[in-house]
Structure formats: structure tokens, C-alpha cells
Design a protein around this nucleic acid. Structure first.
Lengths: 236, 236
DNA sequence: AGTGGTAAAACTGTCGACAGTCGGCAATCG
DNA sequence: CGATTGCCGACTGTCGACAGTTTTACCACT
């Protein structure tokens, strides 16, 4: 009864314990093996994973900086729970970053960037057709990450990566319904077309629409799934 | 009623070693007690501070997530060194965030926000007149933080706070020359005027100019101070 | 003198242990 | 019967120690 739900497949290699624990925790949180607001016991985790508490603590601090955990002094670490307002904030910041990125990108749209993005859309379509929800989300995020990457600002990319962790949380928490594959495809093709046109205004319009759809999708999901994220359940 | 009539909040200092170490390291880095690219020895730090290595490691990881330190596996932590490109990136992201913030702010510009910002400009002018460089920088950053705060997006504010740590590094590294106090004042009054006008375009123009000046100031400083940040001295 | 190899020193990653603190439960008092 | 207080278990914060690795210093050899 020490750890019934947690998979005891923790055969951890000898190197980079912190990163491995961080990855394990990230996956566990995203896949909802830990509920939002749930408290994580350091001793229990270290027992389950077969490591000492030091790497667990450092990994937890890493996840805290990524917004997946919240630490309360003398109380421990808790799984982050997002309420509706925080959800809106996340998508608003995403819009902020991606607008800026696509404006930079359209000014330096190289054939290499074009090719990379088109290739990624292909991967995305493939994933969407395969009905693998997790993979679809990852390919989608990867497309946007590529946009940020080719925008030529490493710091901007880092800010996006930071946000991505919370974004994954939002999306995976909600997404049970499946978008139609062709919807996804056209939605991203519009971005490529806007970039091809070379018009900043067209790019802005495209990215606003694109992220607006994603936001509405998630926000609607919250409304449907219930008040779980609407109320302030242990968000602090 | 318990004995909370008096609020002795400064009594308990014995807690939070990690934060104390993090603050110490932050100050030491900003004040250049550690040179950019320099390696920090955990044992030496723990000896100097009279604590064990565990809190030092956790504090170092915190600073790493803030972009002040860089960790190389099995090698330790190194003080972050910014080259010219990274410097440009930082200011580009700052522009991105503040544009978005001021656009949000002008749409919900309450009298409270207006009063808070005006008050902060007063503090800033005062600091500028006092010739205390560090305090001037802090009051300046605080003004911008207030803008972000009243923009009504907590996540946006957090992104700004994350960036602020690097911003402090850039600014403090360079700023030896003093801006004229009235220059600072007018520069911020322009922002207030743009907000009063209620015009998003005016706000954008004001913030672009404002941050452009700051960026040029720092970049010029880099050019003058020498190639210290221009070359890729231990930036990785 | 320059080079290659080896051994020692120092450092990081990790571990188990100890002390102080927090939350909950029960006994006590009004 | 309800509120308060003291106690108990569990947990976090911190520490010192050990093992493996990297760096450095030194020495032999060309």
C-alpha cells in the first residue's frame, strides 16, 4: 500500500539521476498519475524510485521552476493546479510570444526554415491520422517550437519552452476529444501560407486565429470537463 | 486573539537556507564578486557560508533556472556570461513582453494603476537624483514590473521576472556611466502620457522608444567596455 | 626541452542519518 | 457538549560521509 498506483518500473541508470527523476515526475504529472493539488512525499518518491532524497528534491525544484510543482515551506511539493484565469494567462502569454516570433520569422524566412516547417506539418498530419493523442500534441508543439527556433532569438525560444511545460499540462488535462485531422492540417497550412506571403499583417492574423482556436478549445474543454479547474482547488 | 497585535515579521531568519544562499549568490554575481565564466566550487561556497552542500546545490539550481548560472554535468556550476547576441535577445524578448503588457494595460487603465505608476516614477526620480546607481536600476525595474503587474496576467509577469534577473546582469555589468536624471524622468513620463492618451499606437511607440534607448545604451556600453561580452568567453 | 603517461588531489553526485517542525488526534477543561 | 491543550507520528531541512570522475601535477622518456 506504500505505492499502489505508481509503476515500480524505476530501473534508474547510474547517471543523471536528477534528470531522470524530473522526466519521470513530468510524465507522471502529465499522465495524471498524480492528481492536481496532490502532495508529493519525498521519502515515498525516493523509496519508489530507489534513489535517495537529494536527487528527488533537486528534480522537484526543477519542476517548480517549470511551473509543474509548487513548494510550500515545511510542507513539501504539490502538483500545480491551474484555474480558469491561469489558463487564460498561459494562452495570452503564448499569443504574445508567438506573435513576436512569427513577425521575426517572416523577416528572415529562409528556404531551410520553410522546408523544416513543411516537413513538421507532414509529421503532424501523420500523427493526427494515427489517432495517437499524445504524439499529436507533441508534434504540434514541435511545429511551434520550430517557428520559435527559426525566429532567431534563443531567449525567446527558452521562454516558450518554459511555457510549453504548463501548456502540456493544460492540453493534456483537457483534451479527450479529438480534433479532426484535416482541421489540424489546414490550421497549420494557413500559417505557412501567411509566412509565404511575406506579410506581417497576414502572419499576425493567422497566428491570432490559430492560437485563439487552441485557447477556445481548451477553455471550452474546461467548461465541459467540469469545474475542476474553474474553482480554486489547491492552486496555492 | 493571539499575540499577533505586533507583527515581528523579522524575527525568524533562521529558516530558508536555500533562499538565503540564492540571494547571496545573486548579489555576488551582480556585484561582480564572481567573474563571468568563473567556476563555483560547492565545497568552497559551503565552507564560506557555513552551511552544507545540499542547500548550496539547490540554490545553484535555482539560479540556473534564472539564467544566472550554467551547470555542466560532472563539472559544476559556472557564472553565466552573456555575449552580444544573447544581450540583443534579452532586450528583444523584453520588448516583446512589454509591448504586450502595455497594450493590455491601456485597455484596463484604472486610477489605481495610474496612481501606482506615477508614484513609482517619483521614487525613480528620487533615486536618480541620489546618485545611487543600484537603487536607480531597482526603481526603474520596479516601474516596469508595476506595468506588467497591472496588465493583469500573472504568467506574463512571471516571464518578466524571469527575464529581469538576466536584465539586472546585463545592466549592472555595463552601467558605469550615469544617465541624466531628467532624461530618465521624461523617458518614463512619456509612457504615462501614452497610457493617459488611451491610444494603443501611442503606447507601442512609447515603449518601443523607451526600450530601444535602454538597449542601445547597454549595447553601446558593451562596445565601449570592450570585447568582454562580444567574444564568446565561456558562454557555454 | 617537449611529450606522454601516471598518480594524487579535488570535486561532483549520491546516500543515509539527525533534528526541528507541522498536522492530526486524543485527553482535559470549561 | 464544545473548545483548548498537549502529545505523537510523519515529514522536511540540513548535515557529514563515501564513491566515481575529472583535473592537475609530476615524472619518466624521447
Amino acid at each position: 500500500m506504500a505505492s499502489s498506483t505508481v509503476a515500480p518500473k524505476a530501473f534508474i541508470q547510474q547517471q543523471n539521476l536528477v534528470e531522470q527523476v524530473a522526466d519521470y515526475l513530468t510524465q507522471a504529472i502529465i499522465q495524471q498519475h498524480f492528481l492536481p493539488g496532490e502532495r508529493l512525499s519525498e521519502v515515498q518518491l525516493s523509496r519508489d524510485l530507489g534513489v535517495s532524497r537529494a536527487p528527488v528534491r533537486e528534480a522537484a525544484r526543477l519542476l517548480e521552476s517549470r511551473g509543474l510543482l509548487i513548494s510550500k515551506p515545511r510542507r513539501g511539493f504539490f502538483v500545480r493546479a491551474l484555474n480558469a484565469v491561469e489558463l487564460q494567462d498561459v494562452f495570452d502569454l503564448r499569443l504574445c510570444l508567438e506573435r513576436h516570433a512569427i513577425h521575426r520569422l517572416v523577416e528572415r524566412y529562409t528556404p531551410e526554415a520553410k522546408r523544416a516547417l513543411e516537413q513538421q506539418v507532414d509529421m503532424l498530419c501523420e500523427a493526427a491520422a494515427s489517432n495517437d493523442g499524445t504524439r499529436r500534441i507533441e508534434e504540434d508543439l514541435q511545429f511551434h517550437r520550430l517557428m520559435l527556433h527559426h525566429a532567431g532569438n534563443e531567449r525567446l525560444l527558452r521562454a516558450f519552452d518554459d511555457l510549453t511545460h504548463e501548456l502540456r499540462l493544460c492540453i493534456t488535462l483537457i483534451t479527450k476529444t479529438h480534433e479532426a485531422p484535416d482541421t489540424i492540417a489546414t490550421s497549420h497550412f494557413q500559417l505557412l501560407e501567411a509566412l509565404d506571403s511575406g506579410s506581417p499583417d497576414a502572419c499576425r492574423e493567422a497566428i491570432d486565429y490559430h492560437i485563439g482556436v487552441a485557447r477556445d478549445f481548451v477553455v471550452k474543454g474546461v467548461g465541459e470537463t467540469g469545474e475542476h479547474a474553474n474553482e480554486d482547488i489547491l492552486s496555492r
